[in-house]
């Protein structure tokens, strides 16, 4: 029994026989979400409307995209506190360019460029200079906030080409929002990368035991650098989608506090802040759960202060789950 539990906690176990799938944490997580959705659809009549479901998925994508990036980082027991501010800062810099040139392609590429640039700075500091991830990314967070406010003088960048928000905040066939589609596509790709490629397996080795990974011939410096760049890419994609949705970019769109939801999504999805564990599927489910919590509280018109209480409890529960999974196994 305890063996099964460990298997379940281990997250991704590839190519297992079908029967193993039921022991997998993600399967149970999915069943939980379905159960919650069923209960909620009975309790709240408008919950299951198509509009609300996509609304919910849009919210999940805002949490989920950076959470996918963080999953890669958290597997090495690292952290990237700059994900939300990187998103805001890159969006601002890119939108400034887009506003000046009225060129959507150039603007979107610049948003991604700046996000990757900040990711590279994080990666270089952690992987090559061997600095502590918490401190480096906190510094980048501060830097981002500084640049954001300096470039905008505290206001937001508007006056973007009309096609920008039409494309990136629109919906396919008037039903599926683009951001949801992008989120799912990115999730599928990153899942393949993490679970089925050499890079993914080497990343897990680095996360479980960096010294052993080096003995196994893995260039851990390269791995560490890459994951922070991946974090940057995710922040950039999120920046494009969020800026399009708000049809503007400003320092207000990525408060540092948004990090709470992101890390909660990862840990709910089976990633451990102690490293070595995590899966994209889990993180996607985690993001959906976090979005459901916010959405349900809005729909139920829960008292403001109670929402804080609930969120606080969720964070405590999530942290305790992480402890349960990692508790030193006796005997």
């Amino acid at each position: 029994m305890s063996e099964k539990m460990r298997e379940a906690a281990g997250g991704e176990k590839n190519g297992r026989p079908l029967s193993e799938l039921l022991k997998n944490g993600n399967t149970i997580m999915m069943l939980l979400i379905i159960a919650a959705l069923l209960i909620l659809s009975i309790a709240i009549p408008r919950f299951m409307s198509v509009g609300n479901i996509f609304n919910l998925l849009v919210q999940a994508s805002v949490i989920g995209l950076p959470a996918i990036g963080l999953t890669f980082i958290i597997i090495t027991a690292g952290i990237d506190l700059s994900l939300p501010t990187n998103m805001a800062c890159s969006a601002i810099l890119g939108c400034l360019i887009m506003q000046k040139t009225q060129n959507v392609v150039l603007g979107v590429l610049s948003i991604l460029f700046f996000a990757v640039l900040f990711g590279c700075i994080n990666g270089f500091s952690v992987a090559v200079l061997k600095m502590v991830p918490m401190i480096v990314t906190l510094a980048i967070q501060t830097l981002n906030t500084g640049i954001s406010n300096f470039c905008t003088q505290g206001t937001s960048i508007g006056g973007l080409p009309e096609s920008f928000s039409r494309i990136f905040a629109g919906s396919i066939g008037g039903v599926v929002p683009v951001s949801v589609l992008v989120f799912l596509v990115v999730a599928v790709i990153m899942h393949q990368v993490l679970a089925k490629t050499i890079f993914g397996r080497q990343l897990f080795q680095t996360g479980i035991n960096e010294r052993a990974a080096r003995v196994n011939g893995i260039n851990t410096t390269k791995i560490l650098f890459c994951i922070y760049v991946i974090g940057g890419v995710m922040a950039g994609i999120n920046g494009v989608l969020t800026a399009a949705r708000l049809n503007s970019a400003g320092p207000t769109m990525g408060p540092a506090s948004a990090f709470n939801n992101i890390v909660c999504a990862c840990v709910l999805g089976g990633a451990s802040v102690w490293g070595g564990k995590g899966s994209i599927l889990g993180t996607v489910f985690g993001s959906i759960v976090m979005a459901i919590i916010t959405n349900v509280m809005n729909l139920l018109n829960v008292d403001f202060f109670a929402t804080y209480v609930v969120k606080g409890l969720v964070i405590i529960v999530v942290c305790y789950l992480d402890v349960l999974r990692n508790r030193v196994k006796e005997n």
Binding site: R46, S49, G51, N52, N55, V58, Q59, V62, T155, S156, I157, G158, T242, R245, L246, N247, S248, G250, T252, M253, G254, P255, S257, A258, T294, N295, N298, L299
Partner: peptide
Amino acid sequence: DDAAKQAADISDLITQDCDAIIAYAYDNQA
């Protein structure tokens, strides 16, 4: 104090078919 969350919140209000919506804007552009 999160412009992205305010946008999501107002979407939720719209989903619920409110008769009218009042908003104290966090970001006067967004």
